[in-house]
Amino acid sequence: MRLTSVLRGAVVGLRERFDFGGRDVARWFPGHMAKGLKDMKTRLRVVDCLLEVHDARIPFSGRNPLLKEALSIRPHLLVLNKMDLADLTHKSRILEQLERQGLKHVLFTDCLKDENIKEILPLVTKLISNSERYQRAENVESCLMVIGVPNVGKSSVINSMRRLHLRKGTIRDHLVGEEIIADYLLYTLNHQQQFSYVERYGLTSPCDDVESVLKSIALYLGKTNRIRVRTGTGDVTVRAPNYNAAACDFIYSFRKGHLGKVMLDQA
């Protein structure tokens, strides 16, 4: 028998409700949220649909009531994110209660696995097509406003949608060229007197020649390729430095901060 099952039946006298006991707690609506709400209201005339992101673990109490009142004039989809962290045993009851509150369009999501993220755009498109767009009726593009209180996963939802629908995020290294990126980082590190790469990759001294540095890195890390070379006496297999693999490791180390703190933009 699992310990949790034993404890459920054995522990008694636990509190059934939480009492603040007169302790002072932070007010619900801090100043920066009031400013954000004001900015949202001014932008509503160009918005076709509201995508409200909220934490699935607090589907009722955590939503800002002023947010609901102020932004209820546009089609609205409530995304209850972080469903992987929520106990959804009573999911149907949650949906029923939300519907009683006027929320008919609710979606549970998990951005770590992109679960249900693909359903957002079709739902939003349907909501927009079934609503009056007023002064935006002739505009073929749709404007979606993502809203929600802090730390509920708004950025995670946006990034998941970009990843699934646009198939893009930042520019991929190979589109620029790993060796070009490594060369620029080498230049920057040397220019700012950041020579941590020397010790990290077992170099004897700083060097400004990227080909030489990448060759040393490849040999130090054992990143080599077997190459067959044809000679006058027959084919010979030799090991050559993998410059691309070395460049990738150099870039990775830079991004992880292993090569020191650097400011790429200069004031």
Rank of each mutant, 00 (worst) to 15 (best):
R2A: 08
V6N: 01
G9D: 12
A10F: 12
V11K: 04
R15C: 03
E16H: 03
R17D: 05
D19I: 14
A34P: 06
G36T: 14
G36M: 09
L37Y: 02
K41A: 12
R45H: 10
R45D: 12
L67E: 03
K68C: 08
I73A: 14
R74N: 02
H76T: 13
L77M: 09
L80M: 07
N81H: 07
M83Q: 15
D84Q: 04
L85I: 00
D87M: 06
L103S: 08
C111L: 00
C111Y: 08
D114S: 12
L127Q: 12
N130P: 05
N130K: 15
V149Q: 02
G153L: 06
N159S: 09
S160D: 01
L166M: 10
I171H: 05
D173N: 15
E179M: 15
L186V: 01
F195L: 01
Y197S: 00
G202E: 03
P206D: 01
E211H: 13
S212T: 15
S212E: 14
A218H: 04
L219A: 05
V229D: 08
R230C: 05
T231D: 02
T231M: 04
T233D: 15
T233W: 12
D235E: 13
N244F: 13
D249K: 11
S253K: 02
S253A: 15
G260E: 04
V262Q: 04
M263Y: 10
D265K: 12
